[in-house]
Design a protein around this nucleic acid. Structure first.
Lengths: 230, 230
DNA sequence: GCGCTGCGAATTGCATACTGTATGTTGCCG
DNA sequence: CGGCAACATACAGTATGCAATTCGCAGCGC
């Protein structure tokens, strides 16, 4: 039994939310692969807490649909089929496109500047060395737009929808070529926002999302079970 | 302390999900008004179970954003501001419009028939006597379209977004005049779907949702705190 | 009279013990 | 040798007790 969760004094505040965060992280960066069974007692031991907060954490993650559970048989890390992902990205395109459209009519000059700077940093990062940073910077870009869109509900929904596919190895997206393309789209989006061209901002964002989907879906179709844990 | 939940042998299966359903229902039909504090022990007593499954139920409802909780201070039924609701309905219009568009390209003849029948039943109901039935029939109509749209994720999202405002008294929507208008929109939507006119189906659905929003928001603005429990 | 402090009740957070259910295994009978 | 049934085990579901936190209130000093 390999120990995927390091326990300890990370559990300062609230045991259940801390557990939620730790497990979520472990899932998102692949230490807990799709299909892994999540046994309450084992997790509790590893985190140095009792089963109660672990159960609560698993419930939250279930609500986020990062894990699935069947009655009396426990939880496991959710496995996503290609169709699932396709579905998911269509939703994301719809929602994030809409958010971008809203952002275009609300964005301020300083916010535009923030986005431009994000583009520069993104551009400067190297896919080989700074993969994690690349993912982070990308999230920052998208989150900024969500904030500008000014709808809390929309933002949380999109964030949930963005989060899920991060289960999959991020190097899929960021081959040097892909990175260049992403940078390009980010810049085009910022330009459209700067011109307050809502229509076009939405359009480019949607295409950006669709291309991410294409990459991911084709990768999953090519390596269907490379994600299962054996 | 009035007893808003009737306990009993309804709790056959799984205490936590049963509790979730009972509490959700109580919130949705107003037995638990927005702002009510939800004390674990009290709910547990009323449902004849222990605090543990109640806690889990409250967590689920929190994920559905029917209740909000602050650490160490417990949960309460969520209060929605007018802006909140506005926001919510914009999302619903976007999502349900999209679902309707998808439905237009996928719907089969029997499904069209189901929708037409729903319209007839809806038309036949009286707002004064069969308010509950009216709400039910309306949900059936919308849910059918969601099913036809063929995206599980989209469907569950929309259902969550539809559910929330049901907290508010349904008679708002179904004055005799409003009912007539709703019937009209339902019929127009079915017609558009029958003609596989995706554009128009989406359009009408959106307008239908927007009008529901207008009614609700103006009502809430007019009676802002009529919902608080004092 | 006003505010600050400390105590106590109420209630949530967490741990642990017990109960119920599902599944895999063994041994018996056909 | 195969199938079925009783048992054993592992784990999820539930109850309960104790610890920790919050908040109201009283009493005290200023």
């Amino acid at each position: 039994m390999t120990r995927v969760l390091h326990d300890g004094e990370a559990l300062v505040r609230n045991a259940s939310v801390a557990a939620t965060e730790l497990i979520r992280e472990a899932i998102l960066d692949g230490r807990l692969e799709p299909g892994t069974r999540l046994k309450e007692e084992e997790l509790a031991r590893q985190l140095g807490i009792s089963r109660t907060p672990v159960r609560e954490a698993l419930l939250m993650l279930q609500a986020e649909s990062l894990v699935v559970a069947t009655p009396n048989r426990g939880a496991m890390v959710r496995v996503h089929e290609a169709e699932d992902l396709d579905d998911l990205y269509q939703l994301r395109a719809l929602l994030e496109g809409h958010a971008t459209r809203r952002a275009a009519t609300r964005i301020s000059e300083p916010e535009i500047e923030v986005l431009r700077e994000s583009c520069e940093r993104f551009d400067a990062l190297s896919p080989e060395e700074d993969l994690r940073e690349l993912v982070r910077e990308n999230l920052l870009f998208h989150n900024t737009i969500l904030d500008v869109a000014g709808s809390a509900r929309l933002a949380t929904m999109v964030r949930k929808v963005i989060e899920l596919p991060l289960v999959y190895k991020s190097y899929i997206w960021y081959s040097p070529d892909q990175k260049r393309i992403s940078v390009h789209y980010h810049r085009q989006i910022v330009n459209a926002l700067a011109m307050r061209d809502a229509e076009r901002a939405e359009l480019v964002m949607k295409e950006h999302v669709f291309e991410a989907r294409d990459l991911l879906v084709s990768h999953v179709r090519a390596h269907p079970l490379a994600l299962e844990g054996h």
